[in-house]
Design a protein around this nucleic acid. Structure first.
Lengths: 206, 206
DNA sequence: GTCATCATGTAAGCCGTTACATGATTGC
DNA sequence: GCAATCATGTAACGGCTTACATGATGAC
């Protein structure tokens, strides 16, 4: 679900669609990239659902590069700010802000299925940090269980067909088991860190 | 593409849809399982394209359990055999056989993109063994290149955003790098084995 | 005779993609 | 003035899923 990424990124700061896509690509690379064709419809849907709203108002958005025209009067600046968005004929930038409803949705998304690798990656990257420690732990534990089931299934297959497996299929299954085991021990590490950070109320960062 | 799995399995022996699904599930587990809703339409499409054809004819199919009705006359047996498939009102089993065109398609599928993990797994499991050694090597090398690019992209991201990365995102990226490196060394192993088997024309099995 | 499993298919819908269309802003 | 990039969206299509509909066969 693309919602995880959108809401997770908006939770940190207001963004418009184009920036959202850039951030996503820029954090997780082309494998998790989304296309405009799914991003904009998703934003509109989330707006209809009340999970996000337009964050026009004040010059909240005016990003890094403020043109250096040293001598703009307050009136001129106001004009430029106004021209930036309210226009409805030509499309202007449209920054979104997450709503309380959207935040609720975001924590709900942490309780969703964790068996799809891509979905899990998005949940971990964008949802996890906004949740309460107990919810984080439940989330990580659920993922671990899911991987343990995957591992068990692979083992059953190898036991069942043991010798009669094609060389390539066997190698694939073995490597898959190996990878899954590595994922599980990575999760163990994440879980341990989580415990450590919760017990020591000190440095919650880094 | 589901075609890889279908053609690869049919290359080994004639199968009907239901068995095809079972084999697939049984070899690679639920992660790669396909649903009837995509399997049957795919089979029909492949038949239209001439990549597979119905393998009715002789009792080619009549599987393991031949009912032990000791006293059936030849005529009765023929009747039963006939009733098995030609019927077009009620649906009977419909076993498929791969055609030369299908075999050509199968080797073509080995030259397709290798950047999607699931597709690659199917290609490796069901296509690879039917290809000539040089095609196998090209296939494995292409996959390796693809993973090396993935690795490089991850490294760029980490270098670019280095310190400013969220704990979870960083951990995800690092683990991803690790996994990709492990995939690459697994491929190296497969490639080495391929070389070894090609050079020693002896035991091509196991 | 009824239940599980075998067996084939269709229909609706989800979630995403690519390609297209449009236009504003900025740098040179 | 022109190209690159920023920015938003629509349309068509692709591939897969779930749910539904149908019926045969074999075990008990």
């Amino acid at each position: 679900m693309i919602d995880v990424a959108i809401l997770g990124l908006l939770r940190e700061r207001d963004l418009h669609g184009y920036e959202l896509k850039k951030q996503l690509h820029d954090l997780l690379g082309s494998r998790q990239a989304v296309s405009f064709g799914s991003l904009y419809p998703a934003l509109n849907r989330l707006e209809r659902e009340g999970a996000v709203q337009e964050a026009a108002k004040e010059g909240v958005l005016v990003p890094p590069s403020i043109p250096m025209t040293g001598s703009i009067s307050g009136e001129a600046a106001a004009f430029r700010a106004a021209r930036h968005r309210p226009v409805r004929g030509p499309r202007g930038k449209k920054a979104y802000r997450i709503t309380p409803k959207g935040e609720a949705r975001l924590s709900e998304l942490m309780t969703g299925p964790v068996d799809d690798d891509r979905t899990f990656a998005l949940q971990l990257a964008f949802c996890c940090r906004w949740a309460e420690p107990p919810a984080r732990l439940r989330f990580l534990e659920r993922r671990k269980e899911s991987l343990e089931q995957r591992l068990a299934e692979g083992h059953r297959t190898m036991r069942r067909r043991g010798e009669r497996l094609d060389r390539y299929v066997r190698s694939l299954l073995e490597h898959d088991s190996e990878s899954t085991r590595s994922d599980i021990s990575w999760l163990d590490h994440l879980i341990a860190t989580e415990h450590r950070l919760t017990e020591t109320p000190g440095g919650n960062h880094a």
